[in-house]
Amino acid sequence: MLLIRCPYCEMERPELEFRYGGEAHVVRAAEPETIGDEAWGQFLYLRSNPKGLHAERWRHTNGCGRFFNCLRDTVTDRIFVTYKAGEPRPELAS
């Protein structure tokens, strides 16, 4: 089970308190009727699914209830950083 730090509660809490929300920074077109099938299909279904660093959404369902984002390595499951919704994806110092 993951230990996830909620950036709002500023606490590390067990995964069971959270819901996974899929890949982060997937932006819905402001006017969907103006984009073609290709772009709409990409928005709905295509995901980067990387083996490595993944930006993903989580929601602290059984806590503050808020959405936030997280950078996790999908090979080791190590979480590097969590950050508030609306903030840009942080650069990790390597």
């Binding site: 089970m1 995964e15 999908t74």
Partner: peptide, 13 residues
């Protein structure tokens, strides 16, 4: 598991 991963294990819960 709830989240994507290539770890070839899975959560104990």
């Amino acid at each position: 598991d709830a989240y994507t991963s290539y770890s070839q294990t899975g959560g104990l819960h």
